[in-house]
């Protein structure tokens, strides 16, 4: 059979690099939506190598993975080292649902001193460091699209969105990235 096909990244080749802000597609990464009740969390955390956060707006890192609290029984797990988090979960016999969304989501990295201001061009959340510190993450809106926003560091954000919305989200960021003073 044919060799493994090349993936076609929906934002391939896009880049915005302005004074104070860079907007670029994030590399491909395996992802899953994990659903589970409280009692299953210790076993799943152990299997994944990252402690699943149980508080709103929190994320956790471990084992090259990011786990983002999306709801009381819902997490987005991103594997930055091309592992297979769903398979790791399948190995534990606790009640859960793991669904691969590696191709459903795509991600955009916004970095630089003005990144919060640029994201606030379309996102209504308070992104001050008190209200949204490094490690904070949540599902929210950006313009007319739904996103998952993760603040990796003070000046670096990861925006996850569905594949077909990525052109819009990137375009909106590109427009907002023009306006970095003030």
């Amino acid at each position: 059979m044919a060799d493994q096909l090349q993936r076609a990244h929906p934002l391939s080749g896009r880049l915005v690099s302005n004074a104070g802000v860079t907007v670029e597609p994030a590399p491909e990464a395996p992802r899953m939506i994990l659903r589970a009740g409280k009692s299953a969390l210790p076993a799943l955390s152990k299997a994944l190598g990252v402690k699943l956060p149980t508080k709103p707006k929190k994320s956790a890192n471990g084992n090259g993975r990011i786990a983002i609290w999306l709801g009381p029984d819902e997490w987005l797990v991103i594997d930055l080292q091309s592992g297979d988090p769903a398979a790791d979960c399948a190995a534990v016999k606790v009640l859960h649902s793991a669904v691969d969304v590696s191709h459903r989501n795509t991600a955009i990295i916004v970095s630089g001193t003005h990144s919060a201001a640029v994201i606030n061009g379309g996102c209504p959340l308070d992104l001050s460091l008190d209200a949204f510190p490094a490690g904070a993450a949540t599902r929210t809106v950006f313009g007319k699209a739904e996103i998952i926003l993760l603040r990796e560091t003070e000046d670096r954000f990861r925006i996850e969105c569905w594949r077909s919305f990525s052109d819009y989200v990137f375009g909106f960021l590109e427009a907002a990235a023009v306006d970095t003073d003030g």
Partner: peptide, 15 residues
């Protein structure tokens, strides 16, 4: 503001 032209609304395209 930004919501005009291409950004007036989301345009979804298949792979």
């Amino acid at each position: 503001n930004h919501s005009r032209g291409e950004l007036f609304d989301t345009t979804r395209r298949t792979p």
